[in-house]
Design a protein around this nucleic acid. Structure first.
Lengths: 343, 343
DNA sequence: CTGAAAGCGCTAACAG
DNA sequence: CTGTTAGCGCTTTCAG
């Protein structure tokens, strides 16, 4: 039952035409190359009948396109990225592309390794969440006319395509929402980072506080301490030193750690503290209390990203396809940000 | 700066040797083919100096190996699978393989599509979480001598490699843990499914109940109703009809839905109901109460899977590499299963 | 309208 | 010990 693969040559031989003709027909160039209706049909039918599938490898070698797109994110096991991966996957397979996912852990070293790895393997395009210091590698891709699009964050200094969300606006709105619900001492826990997305978020918070004449309480957790108990200690200290009535977590995993701290050290506060988190998670909905979250439009981001690379793939270096998209995020209001809905 | 790629021919020309020599040297066959030390060194050094990278595509076309492994899971955005993906990714890149992740949604149709898609693209090996009815497609892969390994569940009828965990044992232990903590009316909420892993889990529960002379309360949620509010209704109904003192959720997403139901319809019960879930999640740790979970050894599963495909890739049809591994799961005990640790 | 043939970059059998 | 050469399967130019 091992149906040996058919090649274009087999078809040509069986039908007594040349491989050229077969190739033309199969690539939809019959009209253009003015192949007779008759032959065209014959080839098409025969190809169907033996269930001919072109050898992608050979095709790639010849055309130089691998039909592979790389999606490099910070951590594929992160809720936000894995959900997005699911969406991108669907679009890609639909369009005949394969997608390689990989995680750079927000480290430049690893990002570089991965980019080099994939450059060697003639990947067609890159969708990247860039780690802080890889502008150079990114611009190299750009100058080499390799389709690359950034998302989640970008480098203002270099002219690339990107899809991001309006972080400052989103955080600004969400902060205002806390103010509207009469929270007065609003803390903002974020990562010490000068990446665009984190800076924008902090700006959104600070602006909102200023507009409302409220004091700013920002805790910047050093980035390299991710995963360590030190972050917990820092947050715990921050919480006891400031008598906050609400907290805004600027990122997914800080929320997790923060909630852990609250659970362990201030369990009674969980039902009075106002809480908002950046990036939603299925489980926040069912938390006690359900947690208000800034939610990124995953579906839209995924589509925008894929459509853009696809278009870039089709464009020429002379007239490149440009797309720098800023999408709005939405605020999903749950009990954790309404004092009157507590406990 | 656009450093045009170097080919093996360039090297040969530059060094005045033949491509064969270069190829042999570069493939580490210098010794075997008895190439002189001198030439070997010369080639190696020159290759280094121009930063030569072989064209994988050409190599693949020639050798028939793409160096790509497919990992097909139910849903890559599921916590369990995405964490695992992260582990597999690391091992694969380390070994010079690329990994393609894809989600079959536990649907046969989609599984088949994907398998066909990848067969056309000469993928080297498959790591698969099989949907219920694709035994045939799997055995086809097996009889065609294509490395495939199943995990999470398997088909007893066909002789494949697999990596699974001891589901019945794990659930049995966990159930016993509830009994030991003096829960008497223990409910078991699962999916109506005859897949091995679900059957084993239910068996583990039932056995434990029998051994302790406790009544069995099983709710089987029809599979196709995943994602609908109907599941919620079923669970709500089940909970009001049975005055349970504890619940065992047989799967990840049932826990989420179940907790949602409890939150919405029986909020006061959250602090008395004993709760255990199958498959951990970072957020269960910080829930109120923290939720006891059966946790699969992700790291081990990932390693076992990758090592196995890699070995299968190296083995011949005559002496295939066999590996059917059953790993133990562990119970992470948290407050939700201790009546005395509840407020 | 169709075919011959070159060649993408690499491997490996065969021949010195 | 090293080189010649025939492909892997496909696309595409050029020549009828």
């Amino acid at each position: 039952m091992k149906n040996k693969r058919h090649s274009i040559k087999d078809i040509a031989a069986a039908l007594n035409v040349s491989v050229t003709t077969v190739s033309f027909v199969l690539n939809g160039k019959a009209k253009e190359k003015r192949i007779s209706e008759e032959v065209t049909k014959k080839v098409l039918e025969y190809a169907r009948s033996i269930n001919y599938k072109p050898n992608q490898l050979a095709q790639s070698l010849r055309t130089g396109r691998s039909k592979i797109i790389v999606v490099m994110v910070e951590d594929i096991s992160n809720y936000f990225f894995s959900k997005l991966a699911r969406i991108i996957e669907d679009i890609a397979y639909d369009k005949g592309y394969k997608v390689l996912f990989c995680s750079n852990e927000n480290k430049d070293e690893r990002s570089r390794e991965l980019i080099n790895l994939f450059r060697e393997r003639q990947v067609d395009g890159y969708i990247i969440v860039p780690s802080p210091g890889i502008q150079e590698d990114i611009s190299e891709l750009v100058t080499d006319d390799i389709p690359v699009i950034l998302f989640d964050r970008y480098f203002p200094e270099i002219d690339t395509n990107y899809v991001i969300i309006d972080n400052s606006e989103a955080v600004h709105n969400a902060s205002q929402h806390l103010v509207d619900n009469s929270y007065k001492k609003i803390g903002f826990i974020t990562i010490a980072s000068n990446q665009t997305q984190m800076e924008a978020r902090q700006r959104g918070y600070r602006d909102a506080m200023k507009e409302n004449n409220l004091e700013e309480f920002v805790l910047e957790v050093p980035f390299y301490e991710k995963n360590t108990g030190k972050v917990k200690a820092l947050i715990a200290e921050y919480l006891s030193n400031n008598d906050l009535d609400s907290i805004f977590f600027a990122t997914n995993y800080l929320t997790q750690i923060g909630l852990e701290v609250i659970r362990e050290s201030f369990p009674d506060k969980i039902n009075e503290l106002g809480i908002i988190t950046f990036d939603d998670n299925d489980l926040f909905k069912i938390y006690f209390p359900p947690i208000t979250a800034v939610s990124q439009p995953l579906e839209e981001i995924g589509k925008e990203l894929m459509n853009t690379v696809l278009k870039m793939l089709k464009s020429t270096p002379e007239k490149p396809y440009r797309n720098q998209k800023i999408l709005p995020a939405s605020l999903i209001k749950r009990n954790s940000s309404f004092p009157n809905k507590r406990p």
